[in-house]
Structures are given as structure tokens and as C-alpha cells.
Design a protein around this nucleic acid. Structure first.
Lengths: 160, 160
DNA sequence: AAAGTAAGTTCAGTATTTGAACTTACTCGA
DNA sequence: TCGAGTAAGTTCAAATACTGAACTTACTTT
């Protein structure tokens, strides 16, 4: 019996879960973003078990969030770098940051870290919005449904 | 040996990972948001193993993302409902949706589902932005650091 | 009275995670 | 040139976690 995989699921949330739902993976991506690139960088920063780390890096490379570049041949040694797909994933990490900051500590306390723009020095406060309106997502006005293109096709088929 | 927990980690991403990094949890939260409330609702919609589901619901209640309300006494039966903390988590799901939609399918294909506003009928395209500027997060201008309040205290101490 | 329902729990077999020790192929300093 | 050090894994055994199927409990319906 292996773990149920979501990589063929029609829902984008399930597909994302399949990639980043492995224990340690979001934290490994955080460190990759913060500059870790070699195996030892991750080991030094994270006390993650080496066996687990090796498996996670392998999968992240397979899934295209990290790329592997040899920096030495014998023995072969690699550097792991964020790909475009990996950078895009940052939005998820940042949404987790926001939620974790707001809800991850007991009342009255909060994290001792913050997000800043190194150019302006301003604090960055992430928020998820709708591109069309620029407004935050309203949970009471959010539905998931078959795409209108698929719907249209169905309607069209029904009309014929 | 038990799994390394991140619920005391100083990083908000780690705290979020601790809650939602369990396999099935994001998908269970998706269904809860879509209206599932009883044990059987989740079983019907998700073919999740009942034992796993029971454990996840228990932990989500413990962590305050779902609340448990008895709708019958003997035998005791509960309804699981989203709390404010659970609704806030929707931002993370929605960020996962966006990333999953864009990167979870092979080139040229995409998911057959979409997010819509049921009032206007418009598609909702989620994006993570900085509240201050309204602009998307630029991965090259994002640093995580000790909070300025902590820094200020240090600077002040140094000045004295 | 028998069958069905709802929400779990129990079970045994796999799979995964963990920490510690081991491996490989250099590189450096004495 | 010998021994120690480094880097990136791999291997191992023990502990957990996940899975699907069967079981339980206390009603409710036919």
C-alpha cells in the first residue's frame, strides 16, 4: 500500500498538494529560496535527516521546482537551484507565511521575523487578491466549477 | 522516532507546514470549504481512508481550523464546520490553486475547473500581492529577517 | 425482526520517516 | 605520503504513519 497520490487529480489544489504535501518540502523550498543550494547547506540549516533530504531534493528536481547542476565531476556533486516553477511556488510559501503569522501563535504573540523589501526596506505584507478587482478573496463568494469552456462545449453539444 | 514537528519553529511557514503538511489535510479543508461537514460527506467525496480521515479531522479540530458540534447525542455524532481560522486558511488553498493551475499540467493543457464569484459570475484569478503596493510579490525583492521591533531594541541597547 | 445508516475503531500489511553509521573520492597539511 | 577532513549521499534498523477491509455501536426504517 502506498500513499494515495494526487498527481492525476483534476483539482489544482490536489496537484499542488501532491508536490508540496510531503513533510519537509515547503521548508526545504524556503531554504532554497533563501539561498541554500548544496546538500550540505540544507543539512546545516535545517536538521532534516539526510535520507529524507535526499529523497525530497530528488523529487523536487523530478517535479521541476529545482534544477540540478554538477559543480564537480568526481565524485559527482550537484547544486540545486530554483527554477521558474520553483520561484512561482513562492506565492504559496508567502500565503503560508501570512496565515502562519496571523494564526500560528497564541493570542497576543506573533513571530519574531518579518518579510521586507531589501531595496526600500519596507515591510512586505502579503495578501491574496482577485486580479480583476484587486480585492481580497471573499470566502463567501468563491465557488469552484467546471470551466466555462467545458460548460460551453456541453451546452453546445446539448443544443445540437 | 516520530515525525519532526514544526509547531515551535519561529518561522510562520514552518508553523503553517505543521498544520497543513499532513497528507490529505489541504484536500480535506477544500471539501470542508465546499460544504462537507459530516464524516460521511468527506468519505463520499474523497475516497480517503476512514482511519486517516478521523485522525485529520481530530487534528484540525485541535488546531482550531474546524469546530465540532454535536447534532445527535446517542450515539454521539458531530458536524465539522470551518472556523474563522479555517476560513483564513483559504488564502493558502487559493494560492495553491493558482500555482497548481499554472504549473500542475503538462504544457498546453490546464485544469478543467475554475474559480468564480457566484454573485457576478466572473472568473476569479487569485494573485498574491503586497498590501502596501498592490503589486505581485517580486521574488528577487523579498527577504526574511528579524522584526524591526526586535532590531530596534538591539540598536537601542547598543546606543546606550 | 431484519436490514440499513452514520461515524467511527480495529486490524494487519506496507510504506515512510528517523538518527546514526557507513561509503566514496577527493583535498589539505605535516 | 600518510592521516585527517570534507561533501554528498547511501544503508540500516527501529518507530510511525497510511491503507483498505472488516467490525462496532446505537439508532432508524421497512
Amino acid at each position: 500500500m502506498k500513499r494515495t497520490r494526487f498527481d492525476r487529480d483534476p483539482c489544482p489544489i490536489a496537484r499542488a498538494t501532491d508536490v508540496m504535501g510531503d513533510w519537509w518540502t515547503p521548508i526545504i523550498m524556503r531554504e532554497a529560496f533563501l539561498g541554500a543550494s548544496r546538500f550540505g547547506d540544507f543539512v546545516d540549516r535545517l536538521d532534516v535527516p539526510r535520507a529524507t533530504l535526499a529523497k525530497r531534493l530528488e523529487r523536487l528536481v523530478e517535479d521541476g521546482l529545482l534544477s540540478q547542476t554538477a559543480y564537480q565531476d568526481n565524485p559527482p556533486r550537484y547544486e540545486y537551484r530554483m527554477t521558474e516553477k520553483g520561484f512561482a511556488f513562492l506565492d504559496v510559501l508567502v500565503a503560508m507565511w501570512r496565515w502562519g503569522s496571523e494564526w500560528g501563535w497564541p493570542e497576543g504573540r506573533g513571530p519574531a521575523v518579518e518579510l521586507v523589501d531589501p531595496v526600500t526596506g519596507n515591510e512586505i505584507i502579503p495578501q491574496v487578491v482577485d486580479v480583476r478587482t484587486g480585492e481580497p478573496i471573499d470566502p463567501t463568494r468563491l465557488r469552484m466549477q467546471l470551466k466555462s469552456s467545458a460548460k460551453r462545449r456541453t451546452v453546445k453539444a446539448a443544443e445540437e
